[in-house]
Design a protein around this nucleic acid. Sequence first.
DNA 1: CACTTTGACTAGAGCGCTCTAGTAGTCCAG
DNA 2: CTGGACTACTAGAGCGCTCTAGTCAAAGTG
Lengths: 335, 335
Amino acid sequence: MEDVAARAGVSRALVSIVFRGVTGASDETRGRVLEAARELDYRPDTRASRLGRGRTRMLGVTFAVGHAFHGEILGSLYSEADSAGYEIVLSGVTPVRDDRAAVDTLLAERCEGLVLVGSGLASTDLRRLGDGLPVVSLLRPVREAQVDVVRTDDALGLRLAVEHLRGLGHQRIALLDGGRAPGAAERRQGYRRGLRVSPGLDEVVLDGGLTELDGARAATAFLALGGERPSAVAAFNDRCALGFVDVVRQAGLRVPEDVSVVGFDDIEQAAYPHVALTTVRQDAARLGAEAVRAVTSRLDDATGPEGGPTPDGAVVEPELVVRRSTAAPPHGEAS
Amino acid sequence: MEDVAARAGVSRALVSIVFRGVTGASDETRGRVLEAARELDYRPDTRASRLGRGRTRMLGVTFAVGHAFHGEILGSLYSEADSAGYEIVLSGVTPVRDDRAAVDTLLAERCEGLVLVGSGLASTDLRRLGDGLPVVSLLRPVREAQVDVVRTDDALGLRLAVEHLRGLGHQRIALLDGGRAPGAAERRQGYRRGLRVSPGLDEVVLDGGLTELDGARAATAFLALGGERPSAVAAFNDRCALGFVDVVRQAGLRVPEDVSVVGFDDIEQAAYPHVALTTVRQDAARLGAEAVRAVTSRLDDATGPEGGPTPDGAVVEPELVVRRSTAAPPHGEAS
DNA sequence: CACTTTGACTAGAGCGCTCTAGTAGTCCAG
DNA sequence: CTGGACTACTAGAGCGCTCTAGTCAAAGTG
């Protein structure tokens, strides 16, 4: 910086002014400084600038490395933060690097707010964190008053799925359950509510999970049901649905002719023409936007790090995307 | 820090000593400082500490957000960097945030070295980058002398695949090509070499790509081949292979009875029992380790940012993993 | 004409650390 | 009792910025 200032024949302060893009420099000088910087291949040190500024305007984000849907969310987070004038600092969660470690590095970097994407952090940790700075839990509903929750209306999503299947005439609809995964409890509840609307529909809950493997296992259980077999299933998520479809097809069943399947998330693969999975779309862009809004509003409203008294956060509505994995049930089972 | 020092009744310098874990403090004082820090919920500001230290010991990593295999690599990068005494700074590449933007933020943070995972950065940018600091291109072979390359021996991988298929008796073996994807040229070459070993084997190259969708398209082209149809295919990667399998199965062909398929990468799904894809495994752990080694060795050897005269980097050998998507060709086509 | 105003620029303190140089105090050899 | 050789600790400059409080000249005002 010193060198740039010297080369441009100005003070260091002036260089700072130019690079921050604030007023206080003539166009001509501005040009000279930029030119000198380019010649010296100088670029401001963001660490030092944040140190000097007092604020960091950094948002810390933890996410599961290699998780497709988290990836989509990150994309949205990046652009939303950018337009809100914040920077994103990523901290990945891996098998050897848990949520706490990920959060710790973000705190040590002095992030002003945290977005935890599908984090499995313990309640006590969450509470403590939320007391210190604005925190939003993305995709995972938590009850702690200290953290905002941004999530899809999971229950509504499964109700939509069930209603769609009922509308096609299905009487027996199974759930491939998500167990303890984030949002699973809500989806289970939505499934139950969806069934109760018309009395006489039995609940059939099979153990599912997050991955194709879980879906495949559920399919094995499903096939073992024999005559009592449901004509449709709603899966915890798309990957689970895809694993299920794979296995039932290998067993000779046709989808959707013999069994209808609906997923959740609307991951990229669900839309591929050879897959064409009917699913409940989570809006990654909206989710990211709401998360950034929730944390930046706390930051910008100067209510201080204690957080406002009103819990912020948002529930974004999912949308049913009908493709070709669902149809009316076989041989006049309808109504 | 000031407060902690006051509370523990020592100087700020002493607090610094304790937190850096260097000698120069008695055990008793050390305990008092740590205690005081805990009470005040103090944790050192890593930005300031790196500023003061002169060195940052940070490794910048760019990666494609939501890419499963990149995810596996990140995991390895984290732990390797940790044991080499470096910290990882992530910078995601998304549709709205290209490689250059990702790299720029890393440079502004003053990372000392860069690991570009499957980066699509232009040659001129790569050269300029490599002139300034140690850079390794992971998974993508580039010719620039300024950057080290750590990659799987892609050509060998495809040769293994082809040899395996030939060993099973396949005469016509197609390649689902990766086009311009990183490593695709090498794999194509390996495929050709593999075929040339026994004369009379025709090359059949179908357009493939990185995703299931590309594999599905290739399958359509494959099915259209009719009587001339190969009895086996080697795909650019697992996702492509999986898409291919999906579509040929839907068309009534059996895998492996009617057509054998081998993938590349060995992603998690390839190992699922209902998938059981024969594939060429890339060793994510080794790749990550080599990348970290390449860049830290340049850093630690104090050869300066100019880099040593000998290009570093590594080629790690892939391994064929035989599962159940490959078998002998149908009706005595063998030999 | 003396006066405020405005725009362009600078000096220098401060951000939260690290680290060199140096000050005590203790222990022991000669 | 003097003088190393340690160990435990501290003062204070420095890292590369930001930003407040200024200076100074030119332009506008009545």
